[in-house]
Simulated assay, not measured.
Amino acid sequence: MSKKIRVLVNGARGRMGKEVVRAVLSDPALQLVGTVDPAGTEEDAAVIAGLPPCGILLTGDLATTLEATKPEVMVDFTVPQSVMENIHIALQHKVSPVVGTTGLSEKDLQEIKEWTARYETSCLIAPNFAIGALLMMRFACEASRFFPHVEIMEYHHDQKLDAPSGTAIKTAEAIQEERQKIKQGHPDEEEIIVGSRGGEYEGMRIHSIRLPGLVAHQEVLFGGLGQTLTIRHDSITRESFMPGVLAAVHRIRKTEGLVYGLDKLIF
């Protein structure tokens, strides 16, 4: 029988963290060895996630828990303000981070890349773990070769801290690699209310919607001569991200350096 992969979940009290705890405990090839959250309360992590006790208690200090539990992989769903420090601490302990926390900049990614080289440990940064979202981005890139006029609408719950979403940014980056930069809309258009046309990235417009009741949704709208094309993905529940998270946990130790995007691991 092959050795189980030792996993620590950081942000285990959050909505995504609870889903990850449930997913890891359900995978016979994984072993949950630690759970961390700023609101560490020494409660059983499985109980917090709505399951019978598993014996893994929630703690409040990442470095101490990494040293005590010796995981191979850390899954991080925390907040933009702490994610860089979390990644650095994990890499220093030779633990591979699988990061779903968004809000990282190009400068952040370059720094993480340098850390992975320094500590000879891999790291995955994934703006979206839903397989359908990855396919949506891939189809959008293909469509942009024929429909260069494109706008992105992303919809999330009203507790999301960053805008636009990491998925929207990665979609725009990927599309830009397939098309020439163009100025969209009327050259003399005027925003009566500043921001009403959304944010601009290489000529594309990105619009962020934040409302209670939403989870994670994105539309990529293309316009052409006498026609439009819409490619949309909807995550109805946070369970939709778990197959991708588990795939990442299984594969991240088999790669090297920084991996940006789950598609780099599974496609």
Rank of each mutant, 00 (worst) to 15 (best):
M1T: 09
I5F: 06
V7L: 08
V7E: 03
V9K: 00
R13M: 13
G14W: 10
K18F: 05
V20E: 05
V20T: 11
V21H: 03
V21Y: 08
D27W: 04
L30H: 06
Q31M: 12
Q31S: 13
Q31D: 13
V33Q: 00
T35Q: 07
V36P: 00
P38T: 01
P38A: 02
A46W: 08
L51M: 15
P53N: 08
A63W: 05
T64A: 13
L66Q: 00
L66A: 00
A68L: 10
E72G: 07
E72Y: 07
V73S: 00
V79K: 12
P80W: 05
V83C: 04
E85N: 12
N86T: 09
S96G: 06
S96A: 15
P97R: 03
V99A: 04
G100C: 07
T101V: 11
E106K: 13
K107V: 13
I112H: 01
W115C: 04
E120S: 15
T121V: 10
C123T: 04
C123W: 03
I125T: 01
A130R: 06
G132W: 02
G132V: 06
G132S: 14
L134N: 10
L135V: 14
L135S: 01
F139Q: 11
S144M: 06
H149T: 11
I152F: 04
Y155A: 11
D158G: 01
K160N: 07
K160F: 10
K160L: 08
P164Y: 04
P164D: 02
G166P: 05
T167W: 12
T167R: 10
A168Y: 00
A168H: 03
K170W: 09
A172I: 01
A172D: 00
A172H: 03
Q176F: 09
E178G: 00
Q180A: 14
K181I: 13
Q184G: 03
G185N: 08
E190D: 11
E191C: 08
I192G: 02
I193H: 07
S196M: 15
E200L: 09
Y201V: 02
E202Q: 14
R205K: 12
H207P: 02
S208R: 04
G213H: 06
A216M: 10
H217P: 03
E219S: 13
G223Q: 13
G224A: 14
D234M: 11
S235W: 05
E239A: 14
V245R: 00
A247L: 12
A247V: 06
R253Y: 00
R253C: 11
D263T: 01
F267G: 11
